[in-house]
Design a protein around this nucleic acid. Structure first.
Lengths: 322, 322
DNA sequence: TCCCTTATAGTCAAACGGATTATAATTGGA
DNA sequence: TCCAATTATAATCCGTTTGACTATAAGGGA
């Protein structure tokens, strides 16, 4: 494609060198004990990342390399999330362009190995308003709602006020609307726009006092996490990706708890089992679990054959609407 | 994020300059007279594209700039498709890394303006096996199926033969399986892997005689188109993006024909109307169309308000399974 | 006027999905 | 030992959705 006819400026670009640095950033997910976790480094405020370099065979292998080097964790399932241009950095002598390619990776936590400088943190430390497994979280109605209304009203134009209120209501399910767990990214963008998270603070006059309590991250890493959560919450509904997060064998309730952890909401138990079984996603191992009180549960394993049968065709998980 | 602790090699990278050229590539779609079309330049074998340069404010604005310059077409709706690393190019003195960021854009064809060097071509010239509006296309059963079986059997290992046959059957709906229109990308990857398209030919010993008749494209542009078609076929089912392709006012049948053009299959008419109406996606203009024989049809326009109401929540279009 | 074409409305049954109830098999404590 | 608590598993109910089909209305052209 080198000398394709795409206009003269392409050649100019080759001469002056419109070259760019490329960063690979990973949002690595595991679920442990019903808590969905993200793999971090630094002060639990940074995602594993590193520049795409000549020695990397591909984007994905570059990403695997950086994550393994920084956290000691090998990656299994990987999926590209989004590519964006960072705000201009100022290089040594000239303006430096940079872009970031973000990825979602699913893995099992297993042995608490890993480098010392890395750790697993619950999603919901960064997004406390996203966990609806015990009902609507208090922070949503007590803190977010008044702050967002305040933000909406702070603008002069009446139409724009209305539009802001409506956006907030839709994203967060205010005013009798239903909570839609897939809108994680829109919600983060909203609180960011309203200046309610620390990341939005630089160069603004918003007083820190009005921040919504939640753990911040470096640069736009928290936005990447929001993107990944949204993608994952959507994907579990039509692809059997949950099993990337499960151990070899598991009970149906463990499987359900994992899905609930990701979705941030509870699922009706009989319906969940019905759907899993009628899709033949799993098969019994024959054993039962010696578990936490109550009748012993059968152990199941994922039927890897489904990846060859229906993988692309679609798989559904029930996440109740009401 | 500059001096984040991501290991020493990051600094090394900054010194030696692991810099990369970034190309922006656009898959621009319009539907005209029931034919879904792609905007091309050159010998109708190249997508509009150009390097991401310093003067571009953002990735999207860079893309818009290149497309407008090369084709004279302004873009409306844009959505990122995928980012991939090209095979290494050899630069002037050293190895040169390059990545491409591809986009899907939806637009209306309108005035046959545009630069002389660009043109609209039907998707199905590049993917003749994807159009099932008049039933299963002959090329699928007469050419593709035997060639794919041949390809599957050409490998030694019996298990691998089985796996290849199964993949082909799943992707193309052989052996009484249902056709799934969203598997466009998997199907292209399969015919590519089987050496049945020209793009797979360089450096191979596959005789050209065994190619499946279809229009090739430069580099991996055809793969990008396949990715875009798959994305679009999936997206029309839960987002009201079709309207980006429609004129101001339209009849319900025109709307249906557009969806059918994209999906590559026919839709049940009463059911289609029911779904459109009960979702309140459109409103009557009050006028009726003076059209092609038969009873005059009411004209409708898209209710832009739905973008504020349910936009993110989801919209469905019926594309029959059987 | 008849016939053809397209638009529009209405019906029907099967499948799906959400909610609820009932029963079984354990553990731990009174 | 028996009861209570806990969890697993099975079965049922019912309203909604959805795919397929039929019937009627309104125009143009022969």
């Amino acid at each position: 494609m080198d000398d394709q006819e795409t206009g003269a400026s392409k050649d100019r670009a080759a001469v002056t060198g419109d070259e760019v640095k490329v960063d690979l950033i990973a949002f690595v997910v595991a679920v442990n004990d019903g808590e969905p976790c993200v793999l971090t480094i630094g002060q639990a405020d940074t995602l594993p990342s590193g520049p795409f370099a000549l020695e990397h065979r591909s984007l994905q292998s570059g990403l695997r390399g950086w994550v393994e080097q920084q956290t000691g964790h090998p990656l299994g399932y990987i999926e590209q999330l989004y590519t964006f241009a960072d705000r201009d950095r100022v290089g040594a002598e000239r303006r430096q362009r940079a872009i970031s390619i973000s990825y979602l990776a699913l893995t099992r936590m297993e042995k608490a190995s890993g480098s010392p400088k890395c750790g697993w943190r619950s999603w919901y430390e960064y997004f406390p308003w996203e966990d609806h497994r015990s009902g609507t979280p208090p922070v949503l109605l007590d803190v977010l709602r008044p702050r967002l209304i305040e933000w909406a009203n702070s603008v002069g134009d009446a139409a724009m006020r209305r539009e802001r209120r409506q956006r907030a209501a839709m994203a967060f399910g205010f005013d009798d609307r239903h909570w839609n767990e897939e809108l994680t990214l829109q919600r983060y963008e909203l609180v960011y726009e309203a200046g309610l998270v620390q990341e939005a603070g630089s160069g603004r006059d918003t007083t820190r006092a009005s921040l919504v309590p939640s753990k911040p991250m470096v640069a736009d890493h928290r936005r990447i996490v929001a993107t990944g959560i949204a993608r994952l919450r959507s994907k579990i509904k039509y692809r059997p990706v949950v099993f990337e997060l499960m151990p070899q064998s598991f009970t149906l309730l463990q499987l359900q708890r994992t899905v609930e952890a990701l979705a941030g909401r509870l699922i009706n138990k009989p319906n969940f089992r019905r759907l899993i079984e009628q899709q033949e996603l799993v098969e019994e191992t024959g054993e039962t679990s010696v578990d936490t009180g109550g009748r012993p549960a059968r152990l199941y394993r994922f039927r890897h054959a489904v990846l060859d049968e229906t993988a692309i065709v679609g798989t559904k998980l029930p996440v109740a609407r009401g």
